[in-house]
Design a protein around this nucleic acid. Structure first.
Lengths: 244, 244
DNA sequence: CGCACACTGTGTGCGCCGTACACAGACCAT
DNA sequence: ATGGTCTGTGTACGGCGCACACAGTGTGCG
C-alpha cells in the first residue's frame, strides 16, 4: 500500500521524490536520459541504445546512468514513457467507434514514429504516467456504451493488440513505397516457389490466382489497417448489441 | 526465380542441398542445433541461448555453428521452425469457426510451451516449412466460406495477432495459479494508488468498483481467451455475412 | 557555525557476447 | 594419387551490462 513498494524508476517517473538530502545535486534528469536514448533509437534502432552511447550523448560517463536507473530494463521503461507523450483527447461529440478509431490511429502513428517500441520485450503491465494516460484515453472512448468496465478493458486490449500486431507486420521494411512493394513481390515470389500445391494447396491457390496482383502485408499500409480494425470493431459492436 | 536466391538457412530447412561435394562430412545437422537451442530456451529463456551455449550443448566449439548458420538471427529462424512442429489438421466436418478456434488454441498452446518465441524479433515474413504449414492449416479453416483469398489471409493474420498478443500479455508471469493471482492483485493495487480519479477517472472507476474482485490479464488465462477470440471471430463473421 | 555523512559522478575491471579470420585435417572428383 | 574444397578448431577483437572502490559535494544536525 505504501508508495515505496513501487520500482524506483516508476517512483521517479511519477515525480515521487523523497525530501531534500545531503550530497551534490544531480547533474541531469531522467527525462534527459529518455530523450537521449530515444534519439539514438530513432536513428539507429533499439540496438543502437547502450548505456555507454546514452551516457556519451549526454556528455557523462556510462556508470553515471546507474544513479538514475537500476538496470537496462529501467532505461526501456523510461524510453517508453517519454516516447508516447500525451494521448489524443477523446472527442465527446463522436461515437465510441470514431473515438477508438482515432485512438488506434494515434497509437499506430506513435509506433510508426518509434518502431523500436515494438522491439522492447514487455515484461510488466503498464504503470508509467503516459502509459496510463493512453489507457485512460482508450477507455474513455467507450463512454456511453453498455459495456462493463471489464468489457471496456478487454476491448481496449483487443484494439491495442491489433495495432501493435499490424504495425509489427508492416514495419519490417520501414521504408515506404517502392521498397515495400519490392519486398512484397519478393515474398510472393518465394511463396509461389515454396508453397507447392500438393502440400500447401490453399496458400498456392491464394498466391497463384490471376486477379489480384500481389497479396499480403503491404495492404495493411494502405486501407488494410482500417479494414482489419473495422473487423475488430465489428466484433466489439456485436458484444455491445448483446448487452443492450 | 532461382531457388538459390533464398537465404541459406531457408534452403537448408527446406532440404534443398547441393550435390555431393568434396570435404569432410558434416558432424551434425541443423535440427541438432535447433533442438539444443530450444532446450536451452525452454529452461532459461531466450537470453540463455548463445552461440557458445548451444555449441557446448552439442559438444562442439562455438565457431563450428557458423558452418550451419550465417548469424545469430538464422539460429532464431531454425528455432522457430522446429519449435512449432506440425500444425493440427483442420477437421472438415466442422465449421470455419470451430476450425479456426482449434487452430488458435493449438497456436496458443505452442506459444505457452515455448514462451521465448514471442521474444524473438520478427524481421521477415514466414517462409520456413513448419511456418508455412501452420499458415496453410489456418487458411484451410476458412474453406467453404465466401471469403476471398485476400480476406482469408487477413482473417488469419487477425487471429494470429490476437493469439500472440494475448499470450504475450499473460505469459509475463508464466507460473499459473497463485503467483499470477498475486501479480494481478499487486497490479490492481498499484493502479488504485496511481490512477487518481482526477486525472484517470475511467481507470479509477474500473479498478475501484466493488463488484468484481480483480480485473485485467488473469482473466485471459481462464475464459478470457475465448471471449476475446469470439469477439474477433464475430468481426470476421460480419465480414462473411456482408459477402453473402 | 562546522562537521559528519549520504549522495554525486568517475575509473577500473570482469565476464559474456557475436563473429572475423587463419589454420590443419578430412574427403570427393578427377 | 592427388587437388581443391569443405570441415571443425583456436585465437582475437570490439562491445556490451554492470559490480565496486573512490574522491568530491553539499545538506541537515549538533
Amino acid at each position: 500500500m505504501d508508495e515505496t513498494d513501487l520500482p524506483r524508476v516508476l517512483q521517479r517517473l511519477w515525480g515521487i521524490e523523497g525530501p531534500a538530502r545531503p550530497g551534490p545535486k544531480p547533474a541531469f534528469h531522467l527525462s534527459d536520459i529518455g530523450r537521449a536514448a530515444i534519439k539514438l533509437a530513432d536513428t539507429g534502432g533499439l540496438a543502437a541504445v547502450s548505456m555507454s552511447k546514452v551516457a556519451a550523448e549526454l556528455g557523462f560517463t556510462t556508470m553515471s546512468l546507474y544513479r538514475y536507473v537500476d538496470a537496462k530494463d529501467d532505461l526501456y521503461v523510461v524510453m517508453l514513457d517519454y516516447a508516447f507523450g500525451e494521448p489524443p483527447a477523446p472527442d465527446p461529440e463522436q461515437g465510441w467507434r470514431e473515438r477508438i478509431t482515432a485512438w488506434a490511429e494515434a497509437f499506430r502513428d506513435g509506433l510508426r514514429k518509434h518502431p523500436w517500441i515494438l522491439q522492447i520485450p514487455l515484461t510488466e503491465p503498464p504503470l508509467s504516467p503516459h502509459q496510463l494516460a493512453w489507457m485512460e484515453s482508450a477507455l474513455q472512448a467507450f463512454d456511453g456504451t453498455p459495456l462493463t468496465p471489464q468489457d471496456r478493458l478487454s476491448s481496449m486490449i483487443l484494439v491495442n493488440i491489433y495495432v501493435r500486431g499490424t504495425v509489427q507486420l508492416t514495419s519490417n521494411q520501414l521504408a515506404g513505397g517502392d521498397e515495400a512493394k519490392a519486398a512484397d513481390r519478393l515474398y510472393n515470389q518465394r511463396l509461389r516457389m515454396l508453397a507447392t500445391p500438393d502440400r500447401f494447396p490453399t496458400i498456392a491457390a491464394g498466391v497463384n490466382q490471376p486477379d489480384a496482383v500481389e497479396d499480403l502485408d503491404v495492404d495493411f499500409d494502405a486501407g488494410g489497417f482500417h479494414d482489419g480494425l473495422d473487423t475488430v470493431l465489428d466484433g466489439i459492436q456485436a458484444r455491445i448489441d448483446r448487452k443492450s
